[in-house]
Amino acid sequence: MAKVIIIGGGPAGCEAAHQLANQGIDVELVEKNNETGGNLNNWYQLFPDRKSAKDLNDILKQNLNHPKIQLHLGMEPRKIEKNKEGKFLVPLSDGSLLEGDSLLISTGFKIFDARRKEEYGYGIYENVITSVELENMFYNHSIQMVNGNTPKRIGIIHCVGSRDEKVCNYHCSKLCCITGVKQAIELRELLPDTEIFCFYMDMRMFGPGYEEMYREAQEKYNIKFVRGRLSEAAENLNKQLQIKVEDTLVGKPLRMTLDMMILLVGMESSEGSRQMADTLGLNLAPNGFIKSQDPHYRNNNTNVEGVFVAGCGSAPMNLTDTLADARSAAMSIMEYIKRI
């Protein structure tokens, strides 16, 4: 019976495993952490429907309870080889060896290290946090400054580590805009009297229901949107943040004091993806993500026969697209297995 080895047990890996197992394929799912779910584990609610991330994660986990799926948690692949018969040999960190007919790379993304935008003061000023840390605050239903006070004015900064030549990331991480809108709404629900600003370059509301959510944020939740990119922030004696932005629609520099600043950190190619590319000889796109053979028709294929890619390993994408991409990858793998 054909066997597929999946590297990476995030949403893409889980969904692909489930789909392949349902088609009667043996699946070996390798995940470096001790639980599956990947970055989804860090999220509290999902956009645009505000579904609990945990609920979705649980469904994905339950689906792995399948006789055809073998889980390898806390494992990392070592140097992968493709033998003469076209089989993939994957030695794991515990010394075991997996053998499969096809390989699916679902190594996901890495969160941009906000300290690289030093002028924003992450890691230097105490009330600058990332969108990931904010999710954790939502989880605990408590939004507080470090000194325990409730923030009276919060700024959400878009495009941190995305679309920025200064950190060598030209690409758009795609989902920070809608994350910002979602988080602004969640903040409003917890903090009815706080002023909330989003500082954006472009609002890219690409998914179904996103634009509606943006409208709702303005109309119902009174979130204020300023078109301008943060240039620098300074900290005053009260540990507040003094930011410099140009309000480009007014055409004047804007000085504002914030109690808390949230950085919408972008997505970068994960170390796992780079390692896989390195060991398998996969082509990378200029942005560092794994290059698909064709963006339309064979988007799950890579330049190596039998190696497929799904989810954020190939480009930043939201959960909806990630799961769809995983299913599409499963189909492509089925097709490949039938052929060999």
Binding site: E118, E119, G121, I124, Y125, E232, A233, A234, E235
Partner: peptide, 9 residues
């Protein structure tokens, strides 16, 4: 240096 607040701090 205003773009590298770590130095100023």
């Amino acid at each position: 240096s205003h773009l590298t607040p770590g130095i100023i701090k």
